[in-house]
Design a protein around this nucleic acid. Sequence first.
RNA 1: GCGCCUGUAGCUCAGGGGAUAGAGCAACGGAUUCCUAAUCCGUGUGCCGCAGGUUCGAUUCCUGCCAGGCGCACCA
Length: 569
Amino acid sequence: MQKLKEEIGQVLAPLVDLDPSEVINLLEVPPEPEFGDLAFPCYVLSKKLKKAPPLIARELSEKLADEEGHFWGKAEPRGPYINFYIAPQSFSQEILNQIWRQGSEYGHTNIGNGGNLPIDYSSPNIAKPFGVGHIRSTVIGHALYLIYRAIGYNSIGVNHLGDWGTQFGKLIVAFERWGDQEKLESDPVNYLYHLYVRFHQEADKDPALDDEARLWFKKLEAGEEEATAYWKSFRQLSLDNYAVIYDLLGIKFEHFHGESHYNEMLDDVIELALEKGIAKESEGALMVDLEPHGLPPVMLRKKDGATLYITRDLAAAIYRHERFHFARSLYVVGAEQTLHFQQLFKVLELLGFEWARNCVHVPFGLIRFKEGRMSTRAGKIILLDEVLQRSINLARQIIEEKNPDLEDKEHAARAVGIGAVRFGDLSNDRIKNIEFDWDKVLDFSGETAAYIQYAHARICSILRKAEPDYRQWDDRAVALLTEEEEVTLIKTLALLPDKIIASAENYRPSILARYLIDVAREFNRFYHHCPVLNSSNDLKHGRLLLIDAAGQVITNGLGLLGIIAPEEM
RNA sequence: GCGCCUGUAGCUCAGGGGAUAGAGCAACGGAUUCCUAAUCCGUGUGCCGCAGGUUCGAUUCCUGCCAGGCGCACCA
């Protein structure tokens, strides 16, 4: 498609007195297929030429009639537009051959040029169970990690574990008062969660507990022995639990540095802030006034001397820059922390770090219940583990029903079950809140991952039944693909590189997810209109090459969303 | 009170300065001697929250308002 644009730009530019790049920017995709594949709107020329746009379109089309293009067949005026139509055969040969040659690399580019790109994602708070609320950061972040790799960045997965802070004081208080070592060891995370919830219940009645918790955290920061022992134990038990979930999701992080990792750097950060004259004492605490920048003030150090979240985030940001010299640094964190990141980036800027502008907060909406928000403290959450297990179970059940002879049912059930949960989270614009609904989570029809996976399984099924000698490139066979469903499918396949780039630039995996629905839809239309194995030899060969390419696009695309496309399901 | 985000079909959501605003779900009707019917084909639905403004043209951009969500000094 890009080549077609360039071709049109070259030919049209001299006729309208614009740069080819300007022409390319003006080109748009028409709303209906019958209006061609690309259109040039003539409104912009009407002022300059003092003529009505439809007249300009007619005149230009006449001039273009003499021009020959490799990829465009004809140019016709329609109202105020010049509509360009692709030359299907050379276009199909170009696109399918490109997919054929590039295989699993199709769609990838090198825009990033190897630049480092740390992505802070998942980052659960220790002592809290992994609820569905955490899945958004995990799934969106991991998709961006993969997508940025595909456009040539060196993504670095950073799990900024919430393993420090006052919540540890709370947990210690709760464990000291009501804890049971045996229960802790038998089901650590749920038990810590139980203690955490109980703490907040009791603290509502007895605020002194909060003071006690702050005191314990202060001890922890001071390196006091008993507090440190508790912390180590709670932390490790939680990590072991997360490992199971990350394993199930197929996620690995390059860096597992929690907030605690930055403890030694906090003094330097505070010193730097004082040195730059941006921090000052206020009621015993250390503050940065952001009033001149239209933001509320931030606190770097509490009056009891303990540090806060933002202090550790400052240290972490500086650490990441020193270590990676990143091209960009991403934070995939909920939208409720937008203000925090505005403050964080502003303080970095005030500290004199020019790279602060390369730090990007990628926010996303909440997962809510119909009745209101989820709350760890109140114990109103749904565990990710349960969601995944139920989804996998349902997938297994459906496979049992529809494909009882399948060999590796477990592999397919996991791919479909986990894929459904992932896709549900990726397919909508990340900024919007999601209402949690079991019926929606456990629905594998319509615009879902299963729909795309199913198309892929059908492709694999046909390819398995085909003679293996289709596996050679044949320009002549591809030139026979002239049915409407074939051409539309090929045009759709051609869009993958653009979609990956758009997903990355907008930090929106949903663009890629939606596109893959289109690919599957166009394949299904083709499938119902054009027999593959029962076609005559050359046409069969061409169609096999076409569906092979479609399968490749689905595999590559779903892969970038962290979703597996099984060969059978 | 101030700030940020969201408002599109009955429901869930795409789209986004330009040609008649699209999908899925739900409802109804149809397709399987043929490559997996988790599929496909058909039928109906819209003051694109409201009011102004910019523009040749606004559902899209700007301002105000309304509704919902989320934040705003010792949590993360």
